[in-house]
């Protein structure tokens, strides 16, 4: 068990975004999370990543438990990797520096060690040649792959992926998805938010549908079928 969330609630002012959301993710499994826009998928991801708090419930990540009264434990940042819808690469750093940054400043690795580690991640994403390029000179797909490498470099317990292809050109979606598929086969634990139902079926072992602030989880891909006509 890597992640267990119990009865999470989140309100923005008076609007209830998540009510009573519970989920579990085991080591080495992939959970695909689908749902209409505005259903609170991004909010859930941001809560799990420690970017915003929640109003009620309990989250267990690894061996740490957090309730709504606790501050997010600082050492969990980095152990929970997050890849954003918009890549959010640091614009003033090369691809290499983006990946290296947290290894050096958070993990306190030496220059050589951090470099080797970052290079290995970039190679894993097929980006070895682009290591010294700045984000503005990369394509959308390449940027998103650098962002994945940046999160992976910290060797996270769990990787949260928030609709990482929804801002991409259709022509670039394939390269990113195939990277994720490879990660899934390698046994990376992931929570995958996506609009692409076919891809969800392919990559994930379990499926969740978030609708009206409530989450339904199942092992059966048929769960996704009832969403299909409306919004895919």
């Amino acid at each position: 068990m890597i992640l267990r969330a119990e009865k999470l609630c989140k309100k923005f002012e008076d609007r209830v975004v998540l009510s009573d959301v519970s989920l579990e993710i085991d080591r080495g499994t992939v959970l695909a999370l689908c749902g209409p826009s505005g259903a609170g998928k991004t909010t859930l991801i941001r809560i799990l990543g420690g970017l915003i708090g929640f109003d009620a419930g309990c989250i267990t990540l690894g061996d740490r438990s957090i309730t709504e009264h606790d501050a997010y434990p600082p050492e969990l940042y980095g152990q929970i990797g997050l890849v954003f819808q918009d890549h959010n690469l640091f614009p003033h750093m090369t691809a290499m520096e983006n990946v290296e940054l947290a290894l050096r400043r958070v993990r306190r690795l030496g220059r050589r060690e951090a470099r080797d580690r970052a290079m290995a991640e970039l190679e894993g994403m097929g980006l070895a040649d682009l290591a010294d390029r700045y984000p503005y000179s990369l394509s959308g797909g390449e940027r998103q792959r650098v962002a994945i490498a940046r999160a992976l470099a910290m060797d996270p317990l769990l990787l949260l992926l928030d609709e990482i292809t929804s801002f991409l050109d259709p022509s670039m979606v394939g390269e990113v998805l195939s990277c994720i598929l490879r990660l899934a086969q390698r046994g990376t634990t992931m929570l995958l938010v996506t609009h692409n139902l076919a891809f969800a079926r392919q990559a994930a072992g379990r499926f969740g549908v978030l609708e009206g602030g409530r989450l339904t989880v199942s092992d059966q891909p048929e769960l996704l079928d009832r969403l299909a006509p409306e919004w895919s």
Binding site: P74, Y77, G78, P91, L101, A102, R150
Partner: peptide, 23 residues
């Protein structure tokens, strides 16, 4: 977005300011 990304990587408040936000 950049600040969020830096925080999820585990950078401290001052590191985020000094290495990401200021540059």
């Amino acid at each position: 977005g950049w600040l969020d990304a830096a925080r999820t990587l585990g950078l401290s408040t001052w590191q985020v300011l000094w290495r990401i936000r200021l540059p």
